[in-house]
Design a protein around this nucleic acid. Sequence first.
DNA 1: CGTAAGTGGATGAGTTGTCAACAATTTCGT
DNA 2: ACGAAATTGTTGACAACTCATCCACTTACG
Lengths: 155, 155
Amino acid sequence: MDAPPRWLDPEEKVAWDNFIRMQEKLIGRLSRRLQADSGMSASDYIVLVSLTERGDGRMRLLDLAKLVEWEKSRMSHQVTRMAKRGLVAREECPDDGRGAFIVATPAGYRAIEEAAPQHVEHVRQLFIDALTPNQLGTLARLSKRVLDHMEKHSD
Amino acid sequence: MDAPPRWLDPEEKVAWDNFIRMQEKLIGRLSRRLQADSGMSASDYIVLVSLTERGDGRMRLLDLAKLVEWEKSRMSHQVTRMAKRGLVAREECPDDGRGAFIVATPAGYRAIEEAAPQHVEHVRQLFIDALTPNQLGTLARLSKRVLDHMEKHSD
DNA sequence: CGTAAGTGGATGAGTTGTCAACAATTTCGT
DNA sequence: ACGAAATTGTTGACAACTCATCCACTTACG
């Protein structure tokens, strides 16, 4: 006998709906714009940012995957595609015969340097500017709270 | 000459990062769980919910697409796939020779009725339970605000 | 040592999303 | 009423994600 489902009460449902719709619209728009004005997908963007933010533009595949919280196979495919377009390259790892370094190429650096200002501007237009600094802070805290909650909640 | 990019200040960056990571983790987990325990994708789920929430379980393709804010081609593909699995069917539209009605089949009804309780439970565990009712209300308002802001901002 | 378990990564098949082009109707302007 | 434009929907090609599986190398343990 199943426990009766605990349906969402009206306020909970409104909260969930608003959140979902907002998030979907926001992410959708941002990624389409990014694609349109830089030819990069959101995934390309995060990978390049992650890589180039640490001085040497070089990271182990699995570390990269953990950093952005992806599965390793997803990262591997992604890197393969980006390598095909010359944005990153794989380098052998001397210490660990199995390993590979992923490196941002000069073209990769150029690509984020060109894409970033526009993208940040859109994040500002669509998200940051919608809220006061106070509200933004609140949203940050609530997001963090949900995030921490999920981390406890194994899966 | 380009205007100098208005980078995010540290608080803005934290807010954006927290939000993005939260949202990605949340959506990721929910959709993997939904897939695992009901064999439905998140897309299948919304389509069926949208269809069955209005009495007759029948809607025009474009209306359906607008409701969930998808592109029409995405909806068309989605419906094709769902039709192949017997969850929905296409019906001709008498008033409009171009049009098609999308209808939830009995199997479609059964499918959401089975999937919904578990899914709602997970939404509760991962999201609702992370926050107090007050905080949830706040998040709802902030989401709505961002949503409204985006609607003004044509695209 | 030698072998089993663990780790780092690659790959293939299947599903889903995007974009662009097209076809069929309907509607609107004159 | 007639042609142009808009609406409704489909399709095909292609990119991206997931899952499962596989291979190569490292490490740990007896």
